[in-house]
Nucleic acid binder design. Structure first.
Lengths: 138, 138
DNA sequence: CCGAATCCCATAAGATACTG
DNA sequence: CAGTATCTTATGGGATTCGG
């Protein structure tokens, strides 16, 4: 690994080591889908069981109907959640985690755990970045 | 699954059971930050060691300079990565995972692993959703 | 030359009034 | 109750340009 162009090699040889170029494509696809602002939150919130549209809206403060509907539809299309509509007089629609979504859910939980453990560190760093003009930032 | 997540797991009684409202706030903040289109990808790609600006651009096909710079700066401000600029004749800037980012990196790896394991299932579902006009969609 | 900022446009997200 | 329509705003991407 230490030849003349050692530094370049690090990037080019063992390169992308665990992330082969052909995997890059669907990693991006999956990350684009589940890694957006709301998908993970919806998946996290669905862990206790099926929820109705309004319940989701209540439990995820700040989401708009537009985004709720949109994200639910995407997750449904991807097979991560299921949608069950009951043709009753007061219309009732329940969303639940599909088996596929349950696997992702565990990872989301870890992410949330990580967020819980480190959010104050992040906040500290973020604050310092704003108040520390000493470094290389204009 | 670690205790960090386990803490949330424990209670499942009422509404918002495992995700107390006060936690919701920073969960959203962290998810907003790392859950965008590129942050995770950058973190994933940095696992092999420091990378230069152009290397990142090469290893993350599709990212624009604008977004690369922007996302790098955010990650840097949050203390997830470090930026080292060498005032050399051919300018060289290296980005590396900071300790904080390394923790997140492991979770990102799991997400990528999950993506690798299930991307074809997702694709199947996605395709079916597109070709199955029979169900409850408009 | 490499790293990054700026301008301009396309698209996605947000708010909310409205409908089946 | 669940979701759509529509308007506005924020964000992302491409090309170009500046700076070291």
């Amino acid at each position: 690994m230490q030849d003349s162009a050692g530094r370049e090699m690090a990037a080019a040889a063992g390169p992308c080591a665990n992330i082969p170029a052909d995997h890059m494509a669907f990693i991006r696809q999956v990350l684009d889908r589940v890694g957006d602002k709301w998908s993970m939150l919806i998946i996290a919130v669905l862990r206790d069981g099926p929820l109705r549209y309004t319940d989701l809206q209540r439990q995820i403060p700040g989401i708009s109907q537009r985004m709720l509907t949109h994200t639910l539809r995407q997750l449904q299309d991807d097979g991560l959640i299921t949608r069950t509509a009951y043709a009753e007089v007061p219309p009732r629609v329940e969303y639940a985690l599909a088996p596929l979504g349950r696997g992702l859910h565990e990872i989301v939980l870890q992410l949330i755990g990580w967020a819980a453990d480190h959010h104050d560190e992040i906040r500290t760093h973020r604050a310092r970045a704003g108040t520390a003009p000493s470094s290389s930032r204009s």
